[in-house]
Amino acid sequence: MARMKFLCDTERCIECNGCVTACNNENNVPWGINRRHVVTLGDGRRGEKSVSVACMHCTDAPCAAVCPVDCFYTTEDGIVLHDKDLCIGCGYCFYACPFGAPQYPQQEAFGVRGKMDKCTFCAGGPLPDNSKEEFLKYGRNRIAEGKLPLCAEMCATKALLAGDGTVVSEIYRKRVMKRGGRPDALGWQTAYPAEK
């Protein structure tokens, strides 16, 4: 079975936010919520890099581990989805997620959280595939239509890849080899400095 993965190629991402716009439009995302966002580190400085990030559909998802009402489930394709009929808007998944994927539309005063909303890998939710209710609650179910997430499909530089993890990593591996002369490996060990 395929395991769906996102991969963003930092050498290609040009911070155009096309993926964000595509996602918001395709999934009819509520105002104020971005299921996907682009982060730029060292903006304006030499060697700045951008990454488009959304829910990474973790294997051992922290959101699912802390949810008090157990509303998360992983599909056969390894996509982490949640049931908005169960969600109580407690905010725990937001505390646990390293990527800031879960967000809450503010429905009432005092910042009371509504039902959590996050990237669905364009796979909708637990409701019948491509039904009107599913679209209104979770957005488009492109996976059921045999299509991949629109953010990746729309990416102008093909920086954002989405799909079966093995295929995606194979494409990325070929890219790295083709680029040549750019050994990304130098300096990598300093991410985890040597023990003294």
Binding site: R46, G47, G180, G181, R182, P183, A185, L186
Partner: peptide, 11 residues
């Protein structure tokens, strides 16, 4: 790595 890096690296 440094040799290879200096050969083709552009920031």
């Amino acid at each position: 790595l440094l040799q290879r890096f200096n050969k083709g690296q552009t920031d």
